[in-house]
Design a protein around this nucleic acid. Sequence first.
DNA 1: GACTACCTAGAGTATATACTCTAATAATAG
DNA 2: CTATTATTAGAGTATATACTCTAGGTAGTC
Lengths: 220, 220
Amino acid sequence: MKTRDKILLSSLELFNERGERNITTNHIAAYLAISPGNLYYHFRNKSDIIYEIFLEYEKLVDYYLQIPTDRPLTVDDMAFYLESVFDGLWSYRFFHRELEFLLDSDQRLRRDYRAFTNRCLAAINQIFDGLAEGGVIQPQPEELRSAMSLNVWLVITNWMAFLKTAHGSELSNNLSLVQLKQGIYQVLTLEIPYLTPAYLEPVMALREKYRPELPEARVA
Amino acid sequence: MKTRDKILLSSLELFNERGERNITTNHIAAYLAISPGNLYYHFRNKSDIIYEIFLEYEKLVDYYLQIPTDRPLTVDDMAFYLESVFDGLWSYRFFHRELEFLLDSDQRLRRDYRAFTNRCLAAINQIFDGLAEGGVIQPQPEELRSAMSLNVWLVITNWMAFLKTAHGSELSNNLSLVQLKQGIYQVLTLEIPYLTPAYLEPVMALREKYRPELPEARVA
DNA sequence: GACTACCTAGAGTATATACTCTAATAATAG
DNA sequence: CTATTATTAGAGTATATACTCTAGGTAGTC
């Protein structure tokens, strides 16, 4: 593998594992057993590395969120979109963690991420549209559907932070893909009241698959 | 005012304004025109300052989220809780911004914040309970209500990050309390399907007060 | 006035961080 | 083989950061 790609891969791994804030360019170089000079030969600075990683993330999610408009959507479609989005979130999980700082430090990233968010929101809207066409959910006025889509996005992008901060034992802050996908349970919770009677049962069954095994204490 | 209190106040102000990551203890001292030694006389380190600020935040929110259990809750109660929570979020807005790093760096904070989250979730649950008693929302099974409460929490705590990252112009990332309170619109969106017919109209009217004036583009 | 507890200044330091520079080595093209 | 280009090592640096240390001031009390 090319050194440049190794740098991107290892950076992503280290960022995910230990947080972007805790990983310096010197750490990355040491991890790869290359010199700092070598790293800076391939990337002008740390921001550039992060930006390139974002471009990969963006490409992955955009790929999965191509919503067919020529046919209605099924519950299976919805399940696929949810699985895919959470897989993407998992692979690039460092990103949402320090998002605000990253966007403050890089104008390109700021601009691209905003466009990315809008595409995601549009895709969620389209999914709801397709599900309504497929008779899975009841059609809703545009305004309500948009606000619901935004709530779905907020739940998806905040679920991981919730897990890391509120969940888990006092010592371990480790996170598993299984836990992360319990976010699907939360997203499906949002949809329940809008399901058509015919699809209530299958969607509830799908939801059940993601139910947390040991729900955290929610009562004081 | 005592120097110690001035440090806390200025730190909060600087953290909110420019992000905890961008503010060093030397910045704080310089801002107050005191010496670093003086600052370190009052606080052992930066984490201690942040922890003290958290304690204030915690106290404020706990104060507002004392839910009466001896009477049903009204729409006005709900509006008050929402306003209060978003006011708190605004006053200590730096906190949720770099939450994960802060909790990773301070065990006390990690422990206390987790307990705080659980208290908040319990309060949201109680509010839903009280609203059901008051006939505002339809009573729901415990499981669904808990999952809904969690979604409310996720929307509330992620709304600000959404504004900062996805909203606003490319250059300005400034945030206003008015914008922040548009999060109430999103929270009320979650409640719509659970409202009793009698309360649909008044809650929709309340929601309308927080509708964003210039909604961002949500369609590609 | 002198004792004491509290408070403050400000220079200083060890370490980390992002990044640079030069020289050398590999790869490739003609 | 040679010239050129791409890649790498590794020492080095300017700046920042969190924090320390010493000496001295201030306020209250007897």
